[in-house]
Design a protein around this nucleic acid. Sequence first.
DNA 1: AAAATTGCTTCAAAATTTGAAGTAATTTTT
DNA 2: AAAAATTACTTCAAATTTTGAAGCAATTTT
Lengths: 190, 190
Amino acid sequence: MNQKILYPFADFGGAVAIRPGDDAVGGAAEHEDIGQESEASVVSYFELARMMERASRRFTGLLRAELTKLGVDDIGPAQAMVLLAIGDAEVSVAELLDRGHYVGSNVSYYLKQLGDGEYIDRAASQRDRRSARIRLSEKGRLLCDSLRKAAGAYERVLSHGEQDRRNLETAFQTLHRLELVWGNATRYGI
Amino acid sequence: MNQKILYPFADFGGAVAIRPGDDAVGGAAEHEDIGQESEASVVSYFELARMMERASRRFTGLLRAELTKLGVDDIGPAQAMVLLAIGDAEVSVAELLDRGHYVGSNVSYYLKQLGDGEYIDRAASQRDRRSARIRLSEKGRLLCDSLRKAAGAYERVLSHGEQDRRNLETAFQTLHRLELVWGNATRYGI
DNA sequence: AAAATTGCTTCAAAATTTGAAGTAATTTTT
DNA sequence: AAAAATTACTTCAAATTTTGAAGCAATTTT
C-alpha cells in the first residue's frame, strides 16, 4: 500500500483468450507408456497439486459449457458435480459428503437448489427419519446421461488402449493416496 | 418449491467431523505397482475429475493449516498457490496465468494482495513497460520454503521408491493430457 | 498518426466455501 | 422413563474465490 503504482495497464479484447495457439487438441499423438520412461522432469507433489487444480478448472469449464449447450441454466457446474456424485445410488447426505468430500453445509445448499430444480428426489428414511434418502429424479438422470455422453466424446480422444487405461487407473490411485494422506495430515498433523 | 419439507434436521456437535475413523494415516502400506495390476475398478475420466477435486480440496486445507501454523494471516491458500506457482522464476502476469491457469482478473487481484503483504516484488519490464516482472520477495521466498518443507514431510510418507516416483509422474502426465484436451474442448468444442 | 492489439488493472456482481447456530429424531445414560 | 448426549441434517450470515465487463497505457500494425 505504500509503494507507487509500478504496474501498467492495457486493453483486453473482450474474450479471455489465454494465449491463443497455446496448445492444440491432443491430436493423434501416440501416448503410450506415460510415466514408464520418465527421463527428465522430476515432479513434486506440489506440482501435481497445481496440476490437479488446473485440470479441475478445465473440467469445470467443460461442464459449464456443456450445461449451457444443453440449455440448463438453473444449476451450475458445482451442482452438476453433485448430481454426478450421486449417480445411480440412493444416498444419504453423509454418504454424499464422503463421495465428493464437500463440507457439511454446502451440500445442503446444493441439494436445495437441485431439489428446487427437480433434479433429485428426497425422502426421509423410514428407519431413521433424520436421515435423508436422495436419488436422482428422471430429469436429473437425463442430465447426467447427457453429461456422461458428452464426456464419452473425450474418452475417444483420450483412451487409445490398455496402456491409457492403466495410466488412468494409476493417476486415480495416486490421487486417492494423496487425498488420504493430506486429509489426515490436516486433521491430525503430519 | 411445491413439496412439503420432507428432509428432517438434527444437531451438529460443533466440529465438522466427517465420519471419524473414516480413514487412517497412510500407514506402512506397501504401495507398489499402483495401476499396474488393476484388476477390478474401472475408473472413468469423470471419476478422476471428482478425485482431483477432492484431493485439491484437501491440499487447500493443508495449505490453510500450514499457513495458520506459521502465523500467516494476511493471505490464504489461494494466494499461497500463486506464490508457489511463481517459484524461483521471474514471471509476467501472462506467464503466471499459464502456470496456474487462473483466469485474468483474479491473478491481478491476488497479486495485489501479495504485493500489499510484501510477498512479491514487482517492476515494469524495461523492454515493454506494460509488462510486469514479478518475483518473490525475501519474505515470499521464506514462506514458500516453509510450505515446501512442510510438504517434504508428506513426501516421506508418500514416496517409498522408484515405483512411487513413476506413479507420481504418470499421474502428472495423465492430468496434463486431460487438462489440454478438456481445455481445448471447451474452447473449440470437442 | 490513426487504428488495432497487447498486457495488465479495477470494480462490481455471481458463485462457492466456511462457520456458527439451530432443530428434530434417535440413542444413551441415569 | 425422563434427561442428556449424539446424530443427521438445515439455515443463515460472512468470508473467500471466480467471473465479466470495462478501462487505461504501452506497443504494433496499418
